[in-house]
Amino acid sequence: MTTIRRPRRTGGPAATVLSWLYALLLAAPLYYLAVSALKTNIEIFTRPFALPTHWLWDNFSTAWRTADLGGALLNSVLISAVAIVLTLALALPAAYALARQDNRLARAITGAFSAGFLIPPFAALIPTVILAIKLDLFYTREFQMLFLPASALPLSVLLLTQFMRTVPPALVESAALDGAGHWRLLISVFIPIAMPGLVSVTILQLLTFWNEYLFSLTITGTAPDVRTVQVALPTLISDATNFGVLTAGTVLTLLPVYVTYAISSRRMQEALTAGAVKG
């Protein structure tokens, strides 16, 4: 941000107006969410966009208790953590292999992962549920720990491979002359050089795991001891929904993600755009 290399090519007034209009459309529901979290139903209904007259912090503790968000957050953390470790353990050696070898077989493997990246996991939701039942892992957290890495593998492998391909051949040669095997090469040469890619993949996939909803709902289920926070949150909806409590719960669910974003916004933006720039 120190030097702007090209001069400002300001878009026309139309572009400026439209871009801010859309920004307003994005911000309005988020603002509505934040102020509603501190209000009663009556106040939400009568003065939807006003600041609360009386700041009702109780909504947060009510949401926390009603949906058992503490336990749910813990489940989410546990599943995401195990899944990311497994993802990296599987993807790093594969990316190393694909970066080092470029014969027909390697290209076929890359092609398979590219195709897998395109097909959304939802396509196979129901057979995946059946697989969980057959493995005797239905309604457990363990299945998600095993399954999420599989859905994350195509993009992780492809991204890491690209970063590992930037390792200079001379470096590989000299390390090989020192007698380094594949594992030594991977750990002391390729991983350090591919570190920016590794960080991006980790952030990107952690966010994906944290936000996963439909598979968690159908496979891990809604039992309070195993459900993730994304599954716990909608349980705050009822015939007589307390919108203040619901929005407070929503804020609590969003908070970990936004805190991370506030701390490392640039890193995160890089990670998420890298995921799609890959294509």
């Binding site: 050696p93 292999a97 493997i109 399954f147 599989a150 492998v157």
Partner: peptide, 23 residues
């Protein structure tokens, strides 16, 4: 060296390709 890609391929086959084919 491509053997190192086998675990991730197996994982992908069991949890992603298999269910898709089972459909």
């Amino acid at each position: 060296v491509l053997w190192l890609a086998v675990p991730s391929l197996v994982w992908f086959a069991v949890f992603a390709v298999g269910p898709l084919a089972a459909m």
